[in-house]
Design a protein around this nucleic acid. Structure first.
Lengths: 184, 184
DNA sequence: GACACCAACTTGCCATTGACAAGATGCTAC
DNA sequence: GTAGCATCTTGTCAATGGCAAGTTGGTGTC
């Protein structure tokens, strides 16, 4: 675990965290493998050993993101509003993961680890949503509507497209919007 | 307009189209200014003259996207379902524009042209949505819900996150989902 | 305890790229 | 016809991604 010496001990996680930080600061275009290496205090080729290439780093971020999302959804109360707010909270709290996850062209979507994490998140989301909205309509439509509205609100918030008062809390702002889906 | 000679005549649009094509093929990371120059048959520095840098190209794509979106929304029938489907149709039909538009960190969001186009699209969207959903709830919530569900569905479709039967039409798939917001 | 093995990391390298500077070209207005 | 200027080119440099080959040191085995 020591940071000195030839073997870093925890380089993989260090670089992953550095990548998330760098992307958060400079955007998806403003980072380089060499910068991550510098931040971690290792040679310029060290990241490649753990991740192969840039897509490998993004693949790891996506996998981590799907796992975090699945955890967040599982931890939420089993009703649509709570789950939807948990979805928004995850997205706003981990905007880099969220952005990468839903741009499969950036990473290796067929990677085994990503697929497992994605499948788990998808299962949690679908199974949950299925029973959360009492409706006379087709359940699949309700599920997609629920997912879409939470995903859409989170995306628009992160993009800064919503012209809401500065300092507003995204979860508070999302509540009445999500509620509109089920009661109005 | 002739493609031969020192002056291309239509380089700006040619490069812009090449950029959209290249990003569509290789993703937001898989293109270079030099590649655009090669596709257009000009020198490697020609794109910089028109766009400055890579962010300049993405800025132009974003501006074009907001204009196209505003046009599409204006052309749609004045009701929520039609407008929502037009939104989805635009996003799926112009996935590159859509992806760039809602990632302001990729381009110069404070660019004058972009701001005007974005404002126009926003106005069309907000003014429209305001009167499209008869509701007892707060109009702003209804507007945000409508925007979110259309944006979310489109994003998830483009990301390939929806596990729907292959060959399905996105607009047909979106219809019952959007309808769920207003009647269930 | 010596040795083999192997993952972790480094050094060195090259083609490609983004960005800038300076020069060449040709349209256009007067 | 010529001055001015937008358009496009040529040349260049630092930075990057990715690969190859080498080094380090921990771990298991006898």
């Amino acid at each position: 675990m020591s940071k000195t010496g030839y073997h870093h001990g925890d380089l993989r996680r260090t670089i992953l965290a550095a990548a998330v930080a760098a992307i958060g600061e400079s955007g998806l275009d403003g980072w380089s493998l060499r910068e991550l290496a510098r931040r971690a205090g290792v040679s310029h080729a060290a990241p490649a050993h753990h991740f192969g290439d840039k897509a490998g780093v993004l693949t790891a971020i996506a996998a981590e993101g799907f796992t975090l999302l699945a955890d967040a959804l599982e931890a939420a109360e089993p009703d649509f509003l709570a789950a939807g707010l948990a979805y928004v909270e995850f997205a706003v709290g981990h905007p880099v993961h969220f952005a990468v996850m839903f741009q499969p062209s950036l990473y290796r979507a067929d990677d085994e680890v990503v697929r497992q994490a994605e499948t788990r998140a998808g299962d949690v989301l679908r199974k949950g949503a299925k029973a959360l909205i009492p409706t006379t309509a087709v359940p699949e439509h309700a599920t997609l509507a629920a997912w879409s509205i939470a995903h859409g609100f989170a995306s628009l918030w992160i993009a800064g497209a919503l012209r809401l008062p500065p300092g507003a809390d995204p979860v508070d702002a999302a509540r009445p919007v999500l509620r509109f889906l089920i009661e109005h």
